[in-house]
């Protein structure tokens, strides 16, 4: 049986205790997107300020377990200041890391997991950095949803923010 240290790496606990980019942005002009994990009641709210294709600012609100909160915190650091295309590439790479079990768990129809096969193009070069610490989550299949909640919410936010008007 995998041990707790496989799941709760030090860097994860650090992001949980000291979440980055916590707070809210005025929406509008920012985009506000909510994500729910109906299984456990975790809720996440992502605020995105997208300025000509770049994520100028991002804030995270809501509540959840250490895995969902730390994943959201790391996500916000990873995509802040990046272009929406870059943010999508990181999202695909992260979801690929998590998708090993997720697709077989419930076949989530969000179309993002598709990027896992490399069809996103060049995602193999994406450096996940600190996010690698979340790799241990796949050994705890019920917690994968916690780790991907903020990313699914971000993906939805990016789609809304970049929709042609």
């Amino acid at each position: 049986m995998p041990g707790l240290e496989d799941l709760y790496r030090e860097i994860i606990l650090d992001h949980y205790r000291n979440p980055r980019n916590r707070g809210e942005l005025d929406a509008p002009p920012a985009h506000r997107v909510e994500g729910f994990n109906p299984l456990c009641g975790d809720e996440i709210i992502v605020y995105l300020d997208v300025d000509s294709d770049r994520i100028a600012d991002i804030r995270i609100a809501g509540q959840g377990c250490s895995i969902s909160q730390s994943s959201a915190s790391m996500m916000s650091s990873a995509v802040k200041g990046r272009t929406t295309e870059e943010a999508r590439a990181v999202t695909r790479a992260f979801k690929a890391m998590m998708s090993i079990h997720e697709s077989s768990l419930d076949g989530e129809p969000d179309g993002l997991v598709g990027g896992a096969d490399g069809s996103g193009g060049g995602d193999g070069d994406v450096k996940l950095g600190d996010l690698e610490a979340l790799r241990g989550v796949v050994k705890f299949p019920v917690r994968i949803k916690c780790a991907t909640l903020s990313w699914n919410t971000l993906a939805q936010g990016l789609d809304e923010a970049t929709e042609p008007v």
Binding site: D42, C65, S66, I67, R143, C146
Partner: peptide, 9 residues
């Protein structure tokens, strides 16, 4: 401590 984390331990 979030209940998920409690029940994991």
């Amino acid at each position: 401590v979030h209940p998920h984390d409690v029940s994991q331990v």
